[in-house]
Design a protein around this nucleic acid. Structure first.
Length: 472
RNA sequence: GGUCCCAUCGUCUAGUGGCCUAGGAUACUGGCCUCUCACGCCAGAGACACGGGUUCGAAUCCCGUUGGGACUACCA
């Protein structure tokens, strides 16, 4: 059996966005599942909008998501000779012709037709003029005007189009560049693509492309049009829905495995399973399980998945991943052993690396800043004595261990006749500045005797200062 | 406007004529665990867009309506 060849063909006119990433993922997964070939092709024929920067951004995002390609990246601008050859073939076989209509003229006639209630398509006035090449001229495809073209889509099933709806699309622009619909076909034919998996915003382009395959005498690939990803308001996902670029998710502290899992699961399912490792995805991915309706992007579920992967990941890896985020907060650097222990306590409490870095603040900062409300509620005069007692006991404690620490607290609470929480919360505020944190004993253990005692002293000083300035 | 696509809890989805008094996940609510917050566990609420058919039987098949989306370029 011939190998399966898929491709991802972004145009470098911006960053790799969520929708494109999912399309790429489906192509990549399909190829990997069938032990086929995955090709990366850059569709840069739009000279106006293509940028070097975008190409780099797309490549970076592909790499971050772990999608490796077997061939390419190919650049359409480096294949111009090939398109011209194919144009000549089509011209020679009578499937294409030169057209001298200017864009303005065509547009004007389009508007008129629209106003008159006719189809706003090219009227084919240059079809039989027998024109040759010349400045300002384009090559158009002589599109069959009768009959129907059917697209047997792997996801949507058979879709029939009336050829009369199609018009003579431009193949070669007046600047000598091929148009998208032509270049894709030439590339897909010449690269031997067996499966064209792309967004369903291309469904309406497909009949013209099929007609081009026919004109070229080339075998048809299989087509699979995957539904779009929508924003909360159910319109095509775009900037105004928030972050749409893949790398923006990296910057927000998402793990690539979470984004991959989320994106693949959006529009594809495998029974009730939600969590998939990369290998499982490759093993189980199948076009037949791709749904046919558009899906709304849901940040909450992505966050849940990200939290899951953060919990699962070894603390040592997370420690390295969170470092850039800690640095971004201008927090001091700590040694790896310390940081890793701190990170481990935050794993079940962080949904993103960014959240984790923020939660790391009290661990690594030199001084803690008290949350105003927390301080007012828990750093009260009656805590002075328990704090002092605690300092004393902690000082005499040799080796810190969570068990020993817990005993000290429980004994103290008992002696004072209060519940553990009555002491724990104020101490938590003294150590972290806030009322929510990892377990008190693990915090103390990690922070170390010196820092803990220092912060308790500081809290006492704070309370005393408050008593004099705000007696009440 | 025309062409095409789509339609199950708020969201992602399972479901391919009887296993469905519609399952899972997320989000939400309540409880348990507990030094706080999370994690975890348990429970609750929540959907087959509407109307016609076909059939002994329909979320599943057909038609229509409504709603949504995409395309309609010398962009991709």
């Amino acid at each position: 059996m011939e190998p399966i060849i898929t491709r991802f063909a972004p145009s470098p006119t911006g960053y790799l966005h969520i929708g494109g990433a999912r399309t790429a993922l489906f192509n990549w997964l399909f190829a990997r599942h069938h032990r086929g070939v995955f090709i990366l092709r850059i569709e840069d024929t739009d000279l106006e909008r293509s940028t070097e920067e975008s190409i780099k951004a797309i490549l970076d995002a592909m790499e971050w998501l772990g999608m490796d390609w077997d061939q390419g990246p190919y650049y359409q601008t480096a294949r111009l000779e090939l398109y011209r050859e194919y144009v000549q073939r089509l011209l020679g076989s009578g499937h294409a012709y030169w057209c001298e209509c200017s864009p303005e003229e065509v547009e004007r006639r389009r508007q008129e037709a629209l106003k008159a209630g006719r189809k706003p398509k090219y009227d084919g006035r240059c079809r039989d003029k027998g024109l040759g090449p010349g400045p300002g001229r384009v090559v158009r495809f002589r599109c069959p005007q009768a009959g129907t073209t059917v697209l047997n889509d792997l996801i949507k099933g058979p879709i029939e189009f009336d050829n009369a709806e199609l018009d003579d699309l431009v193949l070669l622009r007046s600047d000598g560049m091929p148009t998208y619909n032509f270049a894709v076909v030439v590339d897909d034919v010449s690269m031997g693509i067996t499966h064209v998996i792309r967004g369903d915003d291309h469904v309406n382009n497909t009949p013209r492309q099929i007609l081009l395959y026919h004109a070229l005498g080339a075998p048809l690939p299989r087509f699979a049009h995957v539904p779009m990803i929508l924003g909360q308001d159910r319109t095509r996902l775009s900037k105004r829905h928030g972050a749409t670029s893949v790398m923006a998710y990296k910057d927000m502290g998402f793990l690539p495995e979470a984004l991959v899992n989320y994106l693949v699961r959006l529009g594809w399912s495998y029974g009730d399973q939600e969590i998939f490792s990369r290998d499982e995805l490759i093993e189980k991915f199948d076009l037949s399980r791709v749904g046919s309706s558009a899906a709304v992007f849901d940040m909450e579920k992505l966050l849940w998945l990200n939290a899951h992967y953060i919990r699962e990941k070894p603390a040592a890896e997370l420690r390295d991943l969170v470092k850039p985020f800690v640095r971004a907060l201008n927090l001091p650097e700590k040694d790896d052993v310390f940081l890793e222990r701190a990170v481990a306590t935050l794993q079940p409490r962080s949904r993103t690396l960014k959240e984790m870095a923020e939660a790391l603040r009290f661990y690594v900062a030199d001084e803690v800043a008290y949350d105003e409300q927390a301080a007012r509620k828990f750093l009260t005069p009656e805590m002075l004595r328990p704090f002092q007692m605690l300092i004393q006991r902690l000082e005499t404690l040799d080796g810190f261990s969570e068990e020993a620490l817990e005993k000290i607290f429980r004994d103290l609470a008992e002696e004072l006749g209060v519940k553990l929480g009555k002491i724990a919360q104020p101490v938590r505020v003294a150590l972290t500045g806030v009322t929510a944190s990892p377990g008190l004993f693990e915090i103390i253990d990690i922070l170390g005797k010196k820092v803990v005692i220092h912060r308790l002293h500081k809290a006492c000083a704070f309370i005393q200062k408050r008593m004099t300035s705000d007696p009440k």
